[in-house]
C-alpha cells in the first residue's frame, strides 16, 4: 500500500471511530491490516500517522499513542514471517490481542505520567468493549479489503 492511500484510509477510520458511541478500535484494526500487508517502513509511517490522528481526535497529549502503534507494527512484522496466514482467524486473534495490549498500554502510560486516574469500572469497560469489538472489526476489515488485496499484490510484483 502506498503512504497516501494509508493516510486516507487511516483518516477515514479515525473519522468513523469518532462517530461511534462505543469503544470502536477502527484505527487499531486497520493498522493490523496495514502491518500485515505493507513493508516495514511504510507500516511505520502508518503507525505515526495513526498515532497523530488518534491523539488529535481526543484530548490526549499529542504523541502519546504513537509508541503503541509502532510496537504493534514491530510485533506484527516480526510474527508475520513465522506464523502468519492470511485468513480471518488471524485477524480475530490479532484484533483481540492488540485491543487488550492497547488498554494495558494506556493504563501504564496514564498511571506512569499521572495523566489521569484509572478507575476499575472504566478499566473493565475498556477491556471488555475494546476486545469484543476488535474481535469482530479486525476480520471485518480483512473481508472488506479482500477484493483489493490481489490487485495490490499484482502491482507490487510488477
Amino acid at each position: 500500500m502506498k503512504p497516501l492511500v494509508i493516510t486516507v484510509l487511516l483518516f477515514a477510520a479515525g473519522s468513523i471511530q469518532a462517530l461511534m458511541p462505543i469503544e470502536f478500535p477502527a484505527l487499531l484494526c486497520l493498522m493490523i491490516f496495514i502491518a500485515l500487508h505493507s513493508r516495514l517502513n511504510v507500516a511505520l509511517y502508518g503507525a505515526v500517522i495513526a498515532g497523530l490522528i488518534h491523539d488529535s481526535f481526543c484530548p490526549a497529549p499529542l504523541g502519546i499513542s504513537i509508541p503503541f502503534f509502532l510496537l504493534t507494527v514491530f510485533v506484527i512484522n516480526y510474527i508475520r514471517r513465522e506464523i502468519f496466514s492470511d485468513i480471518a482467524w488471524t485477524y480475530v486473534i490479532l484484533g483481540g490481542l492488540f485491543a487488550l495490549l492497547k488498554t494495558l498500554y494506556f493504563i501504564l502510560i496514564l498511571a506512569l505520567f499521572n495523566i489521569r486516574p484509572v478507575r476499575t469500572a472504566e478499566l473493565f469497560l475498556q477491556l471488555v468493549a475494546g476486545v469484543l469489538v476488535a474481535l469482530f472489526l479486525a476480520p471485518g476489515i480483512f473481508l472488506a479489503a479482500a477484493p483489493f488485496r490481489d490487485k495490490w499484490y499484482r502491482r507490487a510484483l510488477r
Binding site: A18, L19, M20, H54, C58, P59, S65, F106, L125
Partner: peptide, 13 residues
C-alpha cells in the same frame, strides 16, 4: 459531530 476516539477521555467535538 464526533466523540473522543479513546474511551479514557470523556469529550465530544
Amino acid at each position: 459531530i464526533a466523540r473522543s476516539v479513546s474511551g479514557w477521555w470523556q469529550s465530544v467535538r
